[in-house]
Write a protein that binds this DNA or RNA. Structure first.
Lengths: 225, 225
DNA sequence: CGATAGCATATTGGATACAATCTACAATAT
DNA sequence: ATATTGTAGATTGTATCCAATATGCTATCG
């Protein structure tokens, strides 16, 4: 006999530190916490109604991911990236995502294509700019997920975490949204045709194009202030 | 006037947690700590004569890097990778390192080439197998370092951390060392000739070849026990 | 008036103490 | 004998407390 219960591995369940890590990560990625913002352990601890110990653990992990920078006895600040660093991250993404989508499209399922199409449509019709980042990510991620390369996907996800607060600016402030919609349609089309080479090349171009547009915007923005 | 002292940013100096993180990381990478080894917080704390707090911080960071796995209330174990995971990591390295060496060779200095040559020679003559891993890494890293892509280098370094305890087996147990020496000579030669395309292709082949040999070895090894 | 030293406060880093949970073994029942 | 339950010890997770360091204000000196 067996107890046919749907069980979860409680040992793998979230510790307080995990919860705080996820919350801070999301806040940074979504832009709620901005570049250079100071993160006070005590303040965060109070917000979550816990001691500073799990907060410190979360901050240590965020630093390991590059999302915050720690200065001993001073505190943690949300990392600011230079234009060179942003540019490098986009090149990195272009390399990895171009490769991963090639592998994914070669074995993509109809079901996955359907999901991607749905996300592309949502992205195309969404008017609330605060949702663009998430929808954009979901669209791309769906097209990658059949590649059977979890490590690649994890590294891509982390790289995206590190730039998405800047990407938002590109979409919102440079009318990148219209272009993104068109390029998404092109990538989706290539995937539907199982043309992995085209999907790869279009994805590379999509990422590098966004990079260029973002860098140009930031150059002006950072000059003026 | 200015005090012309060589100063260091003491705020960035190592905390206890940093020291422990580095020590554990090195032990895992060098193979002193093996696959599946259990890491007891208390034991580590006693070894370093500190409390468990900085140990926990170090373990949290190691988990973020993929070097250990944490199970709540059970403890941390050195991560074990499946053959598929190892294989994926080598493909990842081939992609990144192939790209990075191309960029690096295009702007490599004579000084750097000299350093790489020295490491290649040391690697070729070293008889102590416990030093092969480090020398191998130094050789490759030297050839990459002029690429001006710190993020890429950091990710490569982390990926290497995750496989080097397996790579050791490949070098020592499959006579991979002789082949590695020849391939290093080829890569170095391409770099000296500023042939970035050849350096890239040889590096890819070098990594994928080592991967194949390692996987074959591990398949037999894991069948028998 | 400006600059520097000294002190008070705020904040982080780490140690100790306690609570939650796991593990292993003994006791009991079938 | 085997399986199940209960309990003690071990181990991790978190709170509280103390030490080390930074920051900002004030007083003092030139």
């Amino acid at each position: 006999m067996s107890l046919n219960l749907k069980t979860v591995d409680l040992g793998a369940a979230s510790s307080t530190a995990d919860v705080i890590f996820d919350a801070l990560r999301e806040a940074i990625v979504e832009g709620t916490l901005k570049d250079g913002d100071l993160l006070r352990q005590d303040q965060i601890a109070t917000m979550f109604n816990v001691s500073r110990i799990p907060v410190r653990e979360a901050l240590a992990r965020l630093e390991e991911q590059g999302l915050v920078t720690n200065q001993r006895y001073k505190g943690a600040v949300v990392s600011s990236l230079s234009l060179d660093e942003i540019s490098e991250l986009f090149e990195f993404r272009a390399l990895l995502e171009g490769e991963v989508i090639r592998q994914a499209v070669d074995q993509i399922t109809d079901r996955t294509l359907g999901e991607a199409k749905t996300f592309a449509q949502e992205f195309a019709h969404e008017t609330d700019s605060s949702r663009w980042g998430t929808l954009n990510r979901q669209f791309h991620y769906t097209l990658y997920k059949d590649c059977k390369r979890p490590y690649h996907l994890q590294i891509i996800s982390n790289a995206l975490d590190n730039v998405s607060r800047y990407l938002r600016a590109q979409l919102v402030l440079t009318s990148g949204i219209e272009r993104a919609r068109k390029e998404h349609a092109g990538i989706l089309n290539a995937a539907i045709n199982r043309d992995s080479e085209a999907a790869s090349e279009l994805t590379r171009a999509h990422i590098l194009g966004a990079s260029q547009s973002l860098i140009e915007f930031l150059e002006k923005d950072r000059q003026n202030g």
